[in-house]
């Protein structure tokens, strides 16, 4: 993956694909699910743009912005871990994975606070279609972050270069989904 990115490309497309084919099948499947959800969100928004904008004002844009930086940095540390493992530096690899997982946990804490604040304000999936999509999409993403942290812990334990490539690919997918989800839900007016 990112740690082995500077090799000469093979002529066979399947051999070019970094990491594991099945992980890419999973990544594409997840992207399709989130992609469809965001497209549906913007489609429903067409019927009530003012209502969606008013609902969006209840969200914490600054917290979500901080979480974007946190997740992007976590992905960077995971990519560095793959590079370190390819260079045979196992101690540094585990340290970088632990730091990536820690930032993932920070993301969960901030998002958890956002959720609890929304629930305390009486917001739920029934409040407005905006919040139906908001809770479903960010809740589903939250579950993926939890799964990603577990995977980071597992590949820190069983740290073969192949496991690291596959495991961190999942983490980057979580990152990729968030950088599209964040502006669509929190920033578009």
């Amino acid at each position: 993956m990112s740690g082995t990115a500077r090799t000469i490309p093979s002529a066979d497309p399947l051999e070019q694909l970094p990491g594991d084919l099945m992980m890419w099948v999973l990544i594409v499947s997840e992207l399709l699910v989130f992609g469809a959800g965001l497209a549906a969100f913007l489609s429903v928004r067409i019927t009530d743009p003012a209502g969606f904008a008013a609902a969006q004002d209840h969200l914490h844009r600054a917290a979500a912005g901080i979480n974007t930086v946190v997740l992007v940095t976590s992905g960077f540390l995971a990519a560095l871990a793959v590079r370190a493992r390819c260079g045979g530096r196992r101690g540094r690899t585990r340290l970088l994975l632990a730091a990536a997982a820690l930032l993932g946990t920070v993301f969960l804490v901030v998002k958890g606070w956002e959720f609890s604040d929304a629930f305390a304000a009486g917001l739920s999936t029934e409040t407005h279609p905006f919040f139906t999509f908001y809770f479903l999409l960010t809740g589903f993403h939250f579950a993926h972050v939890v799964a990603g942290i577990v995977i980071l812990a597992l590949i820190g334990w069983k740290d073969s270069p192949h496991s690291l490539e596959v495991g961190t690919a999942f983490w980057h997918m979580v990152d990729l989904v968030w950088v599209i989800l964040f502006p669509v839900l929190y920033l578009l007016r």
Binding site: G3, A5, T7, P9, Q16, P18
Partner: peptide
């Protein structure tokens, strides 16, 4: 950069 597609042009 992160997922390494820079090395897989196809």
């Amino acid at each position: 950069a992160y997922l390494g597609l820079a090395a897989a042009p196809f």
